[in-house]
Design a protein around this nucleic acid. Structure first.
Lengths: 119, 119
DNA sequence: CAAACCTTGACACAACCTTGCTAAGGTTGT
DNA sequence: ACAACCTTAGCAAGGTTGTGTCAAGGTTTG
């Protein structure tokens, strides 16, 4: 039996057994299971649990933060969208002349409200 | 006055005025201020507000998720730590022989509990 | 100056996150 | 077989997020 049970892993890793189950549900550390369904924590999982503890402790993160980072890692579409938003220099649409953007905005707004015909 | 007030920006962007203040507090979109402290939303801010709306809408994100991504962007130390954790292949420390890691773990645990001398 | 804005601060509340604990039931080792 | 584990499911409770609304007070404009 080359693995620790959940309570042993808890003592060794510094998380509570409850949290180990929670961490698994969030998808951050998923131990393999025995035939009968017991969680089995190997050295790989224990290492990840310890470093996870350091990570969230030292940077004051929530598990949901790490979970979100993981989600971005798995979903490149999402990652690209977030990165795109973050590094947008945020400039006005270049087909609208500099002095007219406000009128353009308001016009668009009134169109949306149905106050002004689209043509 | 080449900018919109908060309620105008709200109507145009699709967020409520309340949320625009919240979004500012979270650090995602910070409009400049007039002499007397009024928020002034220019085209850049409006663009970011609209794309932010699309981003969270289409990918089912929370503002706190985007806030966390922003935090990672600003703090490369944090970013490196998270990335490191995410892509760790999670293997045992290589100075411990393959068959002994369990004993090594348990021994370490007992040392931590003071049940066994460090030497 | 009065109406119609804006500001910050606060109370409220639903939904979720993080944790612990308990209960009912299966597994394992002596 | 019996104690000591494990499993899932659930309640509970304090913290955070997201959102509205309302109050007290400054600003802008007809």
């Amino acid at each position: 039996m080359d693995a620790l049970t959940i309570h042993q892993a808890a003592e060794v890793s510094g998380w509570s057994a409850r949290m180990l189950r929670y961490i698994e549900r969030v998808g951050l550390v998923r131990p393999r299971r025995s035939e009968s369904g017991y969680r089995l924590y190997g050295p790989a999982e224990l290492q990840r649990l310890r470093t996870l503890r350091e990570l969230v402790g030292e940077h004051d993160l929530g598990l949901s933060d790490v979970g979100f980072a993981l989600r971005m890692r798995r979903d490149p579409d999402l990652r690209a969208a977030v990165e795109a938003w973050l590094e947008t220099p945020a400039r006005r649409p270049d087909h609208v002349p500099a002095g007219e953007w406000l009128a353009w905005e308001q016009n668009k707004h009134e169109r949306l409200l149905g106050l002004r015909p689209a043509a």
